[in-house]
Design a protein around this nucleic acid. Structure first.
Lengths: 339, 339
DNA sequence: TTGTATGCGTTATCAC
DNA sequence: GTGATAACGCATACAA
């Protein structure tokens, strides 16, 4: 079978204590001892059992990254960065998909899941009910929120300024000569933070330009997938007075929206301008390339991992809010009206 | 602190053995005992410690999914399906990115990684060196290969027929009236299985149509990202005698290829037809929509998880090869020449 | 600096 | 059917 600490100790004629010291990189070990132990380890092909170590220390070295669906490009790109950032701090990452299932979210947040084996949770919901977070209040599992921004200092979180990001996007459309600007991505349910904030930014930009928001131009999207953007856009184009621009709450929605515009025999950006949020690579290669608001995912990932790591080390420290930068990326899909 | 089995036992006035039986769903427990235990569990909010359980049983309930980069859409979609399929069998999934790093691949394959804590590995490389797999021969970690197909019964694997898939794609181009057909995705290094097989299929289709493969039309791609497809396509278009069709070894390469064609002032499919492999959702919404070979990812994922689960249960059973179905998806990017 | 002994929370082996 | 108890492999308090 596989060698244990004890085997190594016997083989090297030293105590388990010494072997453990060597393995854990403890400094106060004489060179000759270390040599003997290292040789024995080599010879027996010994590897520490991470499970036993965890049982003893109480730390698993695993972080959970909770996302709606890992194949949404934004979350895939986020996951990539999180996994890399976590690796640098010695953590591994377990990905949990909630699939928009609130029950699953609740389990993860409250620790009701009987199989939890991580030191902390990075929770990056597409949309979160405030109520869900209430439940977490009682729990002890370290938690960092990604992408949310409305929880007033009760939780660590790293997020962009959603209101401002949306406002920037819409202001850009207005600057390009658009007046009938639709928005896709509102959520029917009221207590979702992210879409609400984006709607706020959307309306704010409109009003700043003297345009009164029209309820008919604000469309819901069940999820944030291409099909949802496609569907919502068809509805917008079928309506009597069609928009001349569409602001989508995600790049994926925007990809669906663009395709719907083409299928209706119209052009982007000539007839309808389209802009998204996320800046996923897909949009940069699309035709036309997609204007969007870039989220600096590597920054978010690095910061999130740093935060959860700090939280694990010091559970009772005050919550930290990190504001991630965002930046408008102007591309072909929003070329000005009369250029 | 958090309650343990012992606490529950004391509270319920029974032995730990009985509590353990109840928790593990053991049948031979009297109803009154079970009731008492359940009440105590409820009252103390007891949850089994998965780490302790693992130390005892030797099984972690975790599977590793090893991919080059999780934000390559094909792998993201695969991961999604694998996570779901694994959950149905009671497994969780840890994602490891090799980042095309052979050293990292070796660690994962040989178990040299000191922090391994999974019951089995699902290895889905973009490209694999045969030599790497040699190393695994000595190891005991259950392994299932995804997407590879050339290892003659030594390992469990589930894969499509890469040669046939490539051949189908290229035959479709030929049927559409194309003659100068380029291929993007060959690997400079010779012992990569997947690209080699696709090249074989490409050449076979060409010869079947009486076309002699031209070395200049077979382009390498370091990785399988959009930028690689873009770069290779530019080179092809800059050459004196440009191709009238491009077969890409991945959809992502194809997305980059299409963009490069447009940027060169040419049209897809009129001037250059483009086809990929993978059938990721992005291609279905692209303009033009991307013809491709569909890989039935849900099937692959389900089958892979079933295989690794079986392998874990019976380490010495003979290796199983599962052939996953593939299907040509004809879309706009390969509309016939004279249609 | 190194050795000995205990316990982390389970499951499983033995008795009863 | 249930109770006591020995591992699982490691880290560390305490001794030497």
């Amino acid at each position: 079978m596989v060698a244990t600490l004890r085997d190594v100790a016997e083989h090297a004629q030293v105590s388990v204590r010494t072997v453990s010291n060597v393995v854990s990189g403890y400094t106060h070990v004489s060179d000759k001892m270390r040599r003997r132990v290292l040789d024995a380890i080599e010879e027996l092909d010994y590897r520490p059992n991470p499970v036993a170590r965890t049982l003893r220390t109480g730390r698993t070295g695993v972080l959970a990254l909770v996302v709606p669906e890992i194949d949404l490009p934004y979350f895939a790109e986020l996951a990539r960065e999180v996994i890399n950032a976590a690796a640098e701090l010695g953590y591994r990452v377990m990905i949990d998909q909630t699939g928009h299932d609130h029950e699953r979210e609740r389990e993860l947040l409250t620790g009701a899941d009987r199989t939890m084996l991580f030191d902390g949770v990075l929770f990056s919901p597409l949309v979160t009910r405030a109520e869900l977070l209430e439940m977490q209040a009682s729990r002890t599992m370290p938690l960092v929120l990604l992408g949310e921004h409305d929880f007033d200092g009760r939780y660590d979180h790293v997020a962009i300024d959603n209101v401002q990001a949306a406002q920037d996007a819409v202001a850009h459309l207005i600057a390009g000569g658009r007046r009938r600007i639709a928005a896709i991505g509102a959520q029917p349910d009221e207590d979702y933070a992210t879409p609400q904030q984006r709607t706020t930014g959307y309306e704010r930009a409109l009003r700043a330009a003297g345009i009164e928001p029209e309820p008919d131009l604000l469309r819901a999207a069940a999820h944030y997938r291409r099909a949802d953007g496609y569907r919502a856009t068809r509805e917008l184009l079928d309506a009597p007075d069609r928009p001349d621009a569409i602001f989508c709450y995600s790049d994926l929605l925007a990809m669906g929206a663009m395709r719907a515009v083409f299928d209706a025999g119209l052009r982007v950006p000539e007839d309808v301008a389209v802009i998204g949020i996320d800046d996923v690579e897909e949009g940069r290669y699309a035709r036309p390339s997609l204007s969007t608001v870039s989220l600096d995912t590597p920054f978010i990932a690095r910061e999130a991992v740093a935060r959860i790591s700090a939280r694990i080390g010091e559970p009772d420290a005050p919550a930290v809010e990190v504001r991630a930068p965002h930046a408008l990326r102007v591309r072909e899909s929003t070329a000005p009206r009369d250029a």
